[in-house]
Every structure is written in C-alpha cells, then in structure tokens.
Design a protein around this nucleic acid. Structure first.
Lengths: 213, 213
DNA sequence: TAGATTGTTAATCGATTAACAATC
DNA sequence: TAGATTGTTAATCGATTAACAATC
C-alpha cells in the first residue's frame, strides 16, 4: 500500500472521531472527500477496498468505518512495546496517550543514567539499560521506541534485535542498519520543520508574484 | 509540489551529508536513486528541475547539490521562530539542533506556568505567555511552534495569528482553524506509530501466507 | 415514487520508468 | 578514443477522477 493511501485512512479515522463527537452516526463519501481534499470517488474506492459497504442516500455508518479502518491498521490489539531513552522526548512520549490509540501497550522503560533508573514515569518504572535484553526476551516484546541521541541509537538497536525486537519507532536522526525483515519507522521531526520552511518560502514567493500565476 | 517529491529532496540532502562525511565530492544519479528506492531517471529529473547540472562520467558535485537543495527549501536563512509550551516535548525540541538545520532561529519561549516562567532552556529565557502578543509583534516573528495540549492549542494559535504569526509547526492533535494564507504544518506523532502498527500487521500476515504471494 | 448516494468500470492525469543521443 | 553518465523525450504505470447504472 502506498504511503499516501495509508495516510488517507488515518485521516479518515481522525475525521470520523470528530464527526462522532458531533453526534453524527453516518457520513457520505463526499463529506469525507471534501475534508481530505480528494473526490468522493476516491473515498468510495478506498472504503470499497476494505469491504466496507454503504447505503445509497445514507452513506456509511461511522461506527462500522471506525472498526474496519482500525482493524486494518491493527490498532485494536495492544502490542507490548518498550521505550529506550528517558530524556525530555522520552518522557513526553511516555506521558502522551498515543500508545493505546495506535495499538500498543507501553510496558517497559530503559535508560543508562543511574539518576533516572529506579524512578517511574506515568507509573512505569525506569529499568537499567544493562538489563534490557533479558527483560525484552522474557516478556517477548517485539517492538521498541528509540528516543535516544543519534550516536547511541545503532548500538541499542543491535542489542534489541538480538533480544528479539522486530520493529522500531526511531526518533534518532540516523539510518539504522538492521537485518532484513526488521521494520524501522523513522520519525524525523527535522523533516516536518524543513517542510514548513519550504511551504513558507513558496507562499511568500507566490504572493510576491501575485495570484495570477 | 507533491509531498512525496519534497520528501525525496529532503532525503537527498540527508544522503549528501552522509556521503560528504565519507569524503566523497561527487555522486551519480544512480547512487542517489538506489538509496532512495527510485530510478536514476527520477533523480535526474528531480535535479534537472532545480537547474542543477551534472557532468557525464562524473555525476553531480555534492557541494553544489547541497546548496541548491538547501536554497530551494529555504533553510539557509534563519527565520525567527517562537515556541509555546515548555513541557517535556517543548524542552526536547528546544534542546535539539533541528532549528538551524531547518532554516529557523529559535528566539523566544513562552509558557503560562509560573513555575517555569523566568527559567531558561538552552540559554533562552521562558517568558510569560501573557506577554506573548507584544513580544511577537515587536520582534516581527512570523513562525511559531505549538508544543501544547490539544485543548489549549486553538486559543493560543488565535492569539498568535492576531500578533502576526503566519506559519505554525503544530504538535497538538487538533486541526487548527486559521485564516486563509496561514500555514499549519501538523506533526502528528500518533500517525507515525499507527503506520508502524500497520506495517507490523502487514509483515506478519505476509510471512504467515509465505513469500510466494 | 423520486432522487440522493453507492459501487464499479472507463477515462484521465500525473508520476515514474525506459530509452537514447549528447558529451565529458 | 571509448565508454560511463547526463539531460530529455517518449512509454508505461498507477493513482485519481469521471461517469453512470444500481438501489435504498
């Protein structure tokens, strides 16, 4: 599946939650389309691909859509995940409520700093990174979030792969080198900011040229 | 410009930095293509669109590429930007080195919590959010990063727009309502994690079915 | 019933790849 | 020179839109 398509499904889900909070029970393809900047045709094809059926004159049932898109994304289950690196970013992530929304259950925190080992964040104890492999193996944890500096990420990733981790959510600005079959989802904050820079430059030059062009 | 294309330019830039650190001075379109998972043809078209010229048998000069892609993204200048919300996420962002890499200069921090007002992060003083509008106006700041809870983001965005801010990097999980011409770049951490969930589910089902399919 | 909206096929559009003469 | 690689045009491919019969 194309990344744009996946993005679209996630945006549908976001819109559905909003519509539901407004008390709506059904939604038409054109409504979703307008908010997503695409045609109703595209939406109907997306939903059709998921075997979701609507009814003429009524549209689609929001509750059905939510369940089917969620199950496609596999965010209804709760996959155990460990987070390594209890710095400011790590803490922010631990304290957020994104884990359950995205189909994960944050079960373990690790850091190498004696000052934070033994403390707890959001009720989850911070364990000594030296004990990482053993815990990961015993618990059968297959996903990990790396909230570490770039110079430490590769070494930690190597250890985690050896312990059985098969999927990473990586915040370090580095291309991790992992064996085939291991998934790395890079969260490059820098790129969001660069994209903003580009969009500002483009808007300013467009406005300078005038709207006729 | 399509979002995928913009992404590609940013990835080229990342690869160039890496190649330069390895002592390379030139790079061919096929080299960039392989690392980006695209054909040399696509790379040559991307670079051609930027009026970047290579030389047969040698490829492109890395130094030239870096400057031209950077100037297209407008990350060579230093646009002043303010950050609102000195929580864990805000601190992590302030302490990162992404601002200058992406063409921004972080010049002001704001928070409403008396406990942090008057303190400093990375040498930058945290100001009272009550004085936000005045400072933004006086300094002519046109960009802002929102590292706030979703329920406070809209109100702060409204105030900032009134004070002259015309571009937002938004971490709050909310669709900001802003006037036409104001740019909002949403950094949805949740979506990265959902994408990981989907990729894991897909890999696991692919492996279960076997590689023949 | 009448008509709004679906589900699906065909048409369009744009992005990507292929091809190859030009050239360093 | 010979040949690797560019720059660019044509071909292909896939995503998006348009169209419309089916239907609730």
């Amino acid at each position: 599946m194309h990344r744009e398509t996946l993005q679209r499904y996630m945006n549908y889900l976001l819109l559905l939650t909003k519509l539901k909070s407004e008390g709506r029970a059904t939604v038409t393809s054109d409504e979703l389309a307008v908010r997503e900047g695409v045609t109703g045709s595209r939406v109907r094809q997306d939903l059709s691909a998921l075997r979701i059926l609507g009814k003429p004159r009524q549209g689609y049932r929001i509750a059905d859509l939510e369940i089917l898109i969620s199950s496609m994304l596999d965010i209804l289950s709760a996959k155990p995940v460990a987070l390594v690196g209890i710095g400011n970013l790590g803490r922010a992530l631990v304290l957020s409520d994104i884990w359950s929304h995205a189909g994960f259950d944050l079960v373990a925190l690790f850091d190498a700093d004696p000052a934070v080992i033994g403390t707890a964040v959001a009720g989850i104890p911070v364990r000594d990174a030296a004990t990482m492999e053993r815990f990961i193996q015993e618990q059968g944890i297959e996903s990990a979030c790396l909230a570490l500096p770039a110079d430490k990420a590769q070494a930690v990733a190597d250890r985690l792969v050896n312990a059985g981790v098969r999927a990473f959510w990586n915040f370090a600005l580095i291309d991790l080198d992992v064996p085939a079959g291991i998934i790395v989802e890079n969260q490059r904050l820098e790129q969001g900011l660069m994209a903003l820079s580009f969009r500002i430059a483009k808007r300013n030059s467009d406005q300078a040229r005038g709207p006729q062009d």
